[in-house]
Simulated scan of single mutants.
Amino acid sequence: MGVTFKEKPVTLAGKQVQVGDQAPDFTVLANDLSEVTLADSKGSVRLISVVPSVDTGVCDAQTRRFNEEASQLDNVKILTVSVDLPFAQKRWCAAAGVENVQTLSDHRDLSFGKAYGVAIEELRLLARAVFVVDSSDKVTYVEYVDEVTNHPNYEAAIEAAKAAK
């Protein structure tokens, strides 16, 4: 599948995941610099929102949208992953009033980006994507947004999260 950034093709590192796959593990950093892995949220449905940087318009809107939806989702944890530094994510969340989404930084070694096939080699950013992982770590929804500057299908992702067990 081809992905573009500002209409120019980019190369994604790693293997893209598909519905039915066992969700790959990863290690990212929370805003307090502690390590976070997929196992840390085992037993919950995870909606993983992947953005290049929370400091850009579409990423800001995407993170705010999932933050708003979070209160209507039972047993669903919303994780937003970017390569922004943890300090920048924390500052952005405070300024935006985002409290229902956990922002996680993949800046250290692109562990998430490579595990889910969203690391853009040319830019060292993550491509826009949304994944839903059920409580038994099976991938139940995947969207790799074909143009990184476009919005994902919010409604489809939210419905998938509601349907996951």
Rank of each mutant, 00 (worst) to 15 (best):
G113D: 03
E68W: 04
W92F: 12
V58C: 10
A115I: 13
G97V: 03
T56A: 14
G113K: 02
E99I: 07
E99N: 14
V148R: 05
D134L: 07
T80K: 03
D106F: 06
A119C: 15
D106S: 03
N100S: 13
I120H: 10
N100T: 05
R64I: 09
T56L: 15
L85M: 15
D137Q: 09
T140D: 11
Q72G: 13
D74Y: 06
F112Q: 09
F131K: 00
V118H: 08
Y144V: 04
T63Y: 02
V133F: 06
T140Y: 10
N67R: 06
Y116I: 00
T80N: 03
A61Q: 11
D60P: 09
D134I: 08
V83R: 15
A157F: 01
R65D: 14
D146L: 13
P152S: 13
G57F: 12
E155W: 00
A129I: 05
Q72E: 15
R128V: 08
Y116S: 07
A156L: 11
I78F: 02
V83I: 13
R91E: 06
R128C: 11
V130I: 13
V130Y: 01
V142M: 01
A95P: 05
A94M: 07
S105I: 04
H151R: 11
S82P: 09
G97C: 01
S136H: 04
N67P: 08
V58M: 13
Q62L: 14
D60T: 14
V132Y: 06
F66G: 10
L125E: 10
V98W: 03
F112L: 12
C93H: 00
V148L: 05
Y144K: 08
L73W: 07
L110G: 03
R65M: 15
T63V: 15
